[in-house]
């Protein structure tokens, strides 16, 4: 198991480098002088040629792209992500402030979404072609087809604008002392939205995976041994169905991050997703790189957790030669 984990970590390091090279290369291709997007045009117009050159050197913009990448990488290793050009704040500070809210949102949504998806999937599979099965299929297919932001706007319209029972923006009510209830109320809609996005495909995959397992001979065997239905279903059936389900959850995590970008913009949630949109609209390269690096690390770490979970669920992975 140990070597298995180490190998997985070693595989993900070049991928992380690849992402930063790709993003850095793309961002440095931006047309025009990067300096103009970094300095107030009015101030730039008043600067002398020498001052412009000095500013360019100070920002390291006179170097070729590969050199600039190495400089950036060296700084990042030392914890310096540079300055957000739009806000004049260190990127590290900007990112750290945003990390907490995103992690809270994603963790809760991940727990709610996977639980709901798996539960609905199992019920649909056990009651195949029943009313519940058709309902689950209808809802999950619709939510896969409807864009996240449309569902989100409908939620806001119903619960925020028409019924007025849930707050629609932000994480807490401004000007009110912090309370857990207030935070929870603000979280309901973003979490529901993200969970729907996660559980809709998951329910379909769980259903398919369970149906496959339900028809195997060891299920018939354990039932004919006289084991109780629920034990057969959960301990013999679900455990085997779980392996493809873990794969799907792992694969949809990048989608969940993307969904968080939309959800956070929609609900004004002060997280990484909103920061990414701000960086992209403001053409803020340093901030964009910071966001990309953090998100990439997050995705790779969760891939690693997925791989470890395989080993936990499936002894063949843990003990097998292919580990």
């Amino acid at each position: 198991m140990g070597t298995y984990i180490v190998r997985r970590i070693l595989i993900s390091i070049p991928v992380l480098f690849g992402i930063t090279v790709l993003a850095f290369g793309a961002l440095s291709l931006a047309p025009g002088d990067p300096l103009t997007s970094r300095i107030d045009p009015e101030i730039l117009a008043q600067m002398s040629t020498e001052q412009v050159e000095a500013a360019r050197r100070a920002l390291g913009l006179d170097q070729p792209v590969p050199v600039r990448y190495v400089i950036w990488l060296g700084d990042v290793v030392q914890g310096d992500f540079g300055y957000s050009v739009v806000n004049k704040l260190p990127v590290t500070q900007e990112v750290l402030v945003r990390l907490g809210p995103t992690l809270i949102l994603m963790t809760v949504a991940l727990v709610v979404g996977t639980t709901a998806g798996i539960l609905f999937g199992i019920v649909a599979a056990v009651r195949q072609y029943g009313v519940v099965d058709y309902l689950v299929t209808a809802f999950s297919t619709s939510f896969i087809a409807i864009p996240t932001f449309v569902t989100g706007l409908v939620l806001i319209y119903i619960f925020g604008a028409a019924l007025k029972i849930l707050p629609t923006t932000g994480m807490i009510t401004l000007g009110k002392p912090f309370s857990l209830g207030d935070l929870a109320a603000h979280m309901v809609m973003p979490v529901v939205l993200l969970s729907i996005q996660l559980s809709a495909p998951l329910a379909r995959y769980t259903r398919a995976s369970m149906l496959e397992v339900l028809n195997t001979e060891y299920m018939t065997t354990s039932r004919s041994k006289g084991l109780r239905g629920r034990i057969v279903l959960l301990r013999h059936g679900f455990r085997n169905a779980l392996i493809p389900i873990i794969t799907i959850v792992g694969l949809t995590l990048p989608d969940l991050v993307a969904g968080a970008v939309i959800t956070e913009s929609l609900f004004g949630w002060p997280g990484m997703g909103q920061l990414a949109v701000k960086a992209a609209t403001g053409r803020d390269a340093a901030l964009m790189m910071g966001v990309i690096l953090v998100v990439a690390t997050g995705v790779l770490v969760s891939n690693l957790i997925t791989d470890i979970l395989y080993g936990v669920v499936d002894p063949r992975v843990r003990l097998g030669a292919r580990a």
Partner: peptide, 9 residues
């Protein structure tokens, strides 16, 4: 590399 990142980002 490309597939490990959220496409939207």
């Amino acid at each position: 590399t490309i597939l490990s990142m959220p496409a939207l980002l």
